[in-house]
Write a protein that binds this DNA or RNA. Structure first.
Length: 414
RNA sequence: GCGAUCGUAGCUCAGCUGGUUAGAGCAUCGGUUUGUGGUACCGAGGGUCGCGGGUUCAAGUCCCGUCGGUCGCCCCA
């Protein structure tokens, strides 16, 4: 192990193939979100702690244990964003974006959670994010889901991933169902796992997706939400599923899929794979009509999703490596200084190229080959005197002399 | 926060039940060839064996602690 500063726990230095994968995911997202007319937005990496604490609700231990929170020099409590949604809603309120409603927003970047790293979970990781703020239409939910579906398809992982869909209903539905769940679990108190007993007080909905075999029979026998759905909520969910069917997006109902936080309403969804161990969720979101109000704004309907870039990057096929069109191989001092000018010229003409400037010719040719370039452009005194370069096609070994004036055209035009 | 498991060169690993100067492959650099790559051959550099303590005549090897990786639990906005 080398000395000096080390990478801090749960962070990553991304390079080489990993970086190519990462970039491929971001590029695909950026392309697809334009097809759906989602505008790119930039928001701060940190916010006043209040922004996240108020949106999440003080009750959970997310706020106390899972956030990167620290005082700044002025004594204010700041938090590195653990997600995009709360910050976007803060911006929506503080920048007066209400006038642009409904707002279709897309962003991506680093997010931070103070947790134990494991497969596909880091302390600094990266998310794609898409939101529609200010629409109470089921069409907004549908649009977001179709966008997500197309994104996964274009990444080439649509096959191994399934969309699980549920509704949490409106506020009255949710309250009624929650009360019924608590009654059910209370009556089986003696048989619940220790974890679920504490969930019963803090977050009873979470018992539904407990992994403890002790809990499974009780959770599976719990009342479903459908019996408590108000007519309006049932109608809303029907519109969402009808929209998905119309758009040709496959989905499966998972009536056990829940959200712990109170601001969630109606649609909740996850795109899930079984290729990532315990962290199988690849993209998740839902409707959060209560969030902006809890930040102190007016009641504002909104829906959105986020996806982990690293998880997506692990699932896609290896993207092709970016390779230059040509590598210059100058021989001798005179050729080297001439090559500097030629290199600049070629790049300005739109030819991606690099120069091998170390070692003897053999080393330089090896560098050119290792770069994956199509051409090696050999420049020695003989060529210079004739105003030419020797262009070697690395794939075939063919070599011919080309006038410097026409070089860019030759290299670009293959 | 909890549990399991691992930590030897830049990377992947070997090093048997504790026993001399810690090895290999790949990669890097140099050379065989100061004007021709993807092949071959020769050579070189690079390791406080994660860190600290303990047991022992002797520790990479055993014990304790600690830090870090991995996988899982909790949590999952």
């Amino acid at each position: 192990m080398s000395k000096g500063p080390q990478r801090i726990r749960g962070t990553q230095d991304i390079w080489g193939e990993e970086a190519d994968r990462f970039q491929a995911v971001v590029a695909t997202f950026d392309r697809v979100r334009r097809l759906y007319a989602f505008g790119r937005v930039e928001v701060p990496v940190f916010e006043a702690t209040e922004v996240f604490a108020r949106s999440i609700g003080e009750t959970t231990d997310i706020v106390s244990k899972e956030m990167y929170t620290f005082p700044d020099r002025g004594g204010d409590s700041l938090t590195l964003r653990p997600e995009f949604t709360a910050g976007l809603c803060r911006a929506y309120l503080s920048e007066g974006w209400q006038q642009h409603v409904p707002l279709k927003l897309a962003t991506h970047g680093p997010v931070f959670r103070y947790e134990r790293p494991q497969k596909g979970r880091f302390r600094q990781f990266h998310q794609l994010d898409a939101e529609i703020i200010g629409s109470d239409s089921a069409l907004a939910d549908v649009e977001l889901l179709v966008l997500a579906d197309q994104l996964l398809r274009e990444l080439g992982i649509g096959e191994g991933v399934r969309l699980e869909l549920n509704t949490l209903g409106d506020a009255e539905t949710r309250d009624a169902w929650r009360a019924a769940l608590v009654r059910h679990f209370e009556s089986h108190r003696a048989d619940l796992s220790e974890d679920s007993l504490s969930r019963l007080d803090r977050n009873p909905l979470r018992i539904l997706d407990s992994k403890d075999p002790k809990d499974r029979p009780i959770a599976d026998a719990a009342p479903g939400i459908d019996e408590y759905l108000s007519p309006a909520a049932a109608d809303f969910f029907a519109q969402v599923t009808a929209g998905l069917d119309a758009a040709g997006v496959a989905w499966t109902r998972n009536s056990r899929l829940v959200r712990g936080l109170d601001y969630y309403r109606h649609t909740a969804f996850e795109f899930v794979t079984d290729r990532l161990g315990a962290q199988g969720t690849v993209l998740a979101g839902g409707r959060y009509d209560g969030l902006i109000e809890s930040l102190g704004g007016p009641a504002t309907p909104a829906v959105g999703w986020a996806a982990g870039i690293e998880r997506l990057a692990m699932l896609i096929d290896v993207p092709g490596r970016a390779r230059p069109d040509a590598v210059l191989v100058p021989l001798g001092e005179r050729a080297e200084s001439a090559a500097v000018g030629l290199l600049a010229e070629l790049r300005r003409a739109g030819v991606a190229c690099d120069m091998a400037f170390k070692g003897n010719m053999k080393k330089r040719m090896a560098k050119a080959d290792a770069s994956g370039a199509r051409f090696a452009v050999i420049l020695g005194d003989d060529e210079l005197d004739r105003g030419e370069a020797a262009v070697k096609v690395l794939g075939t070994g063919d070599q011919e002399h080309v006038k410097l004036a026409g070089l860019a055209g030759t290299l670009r035009g293959r």
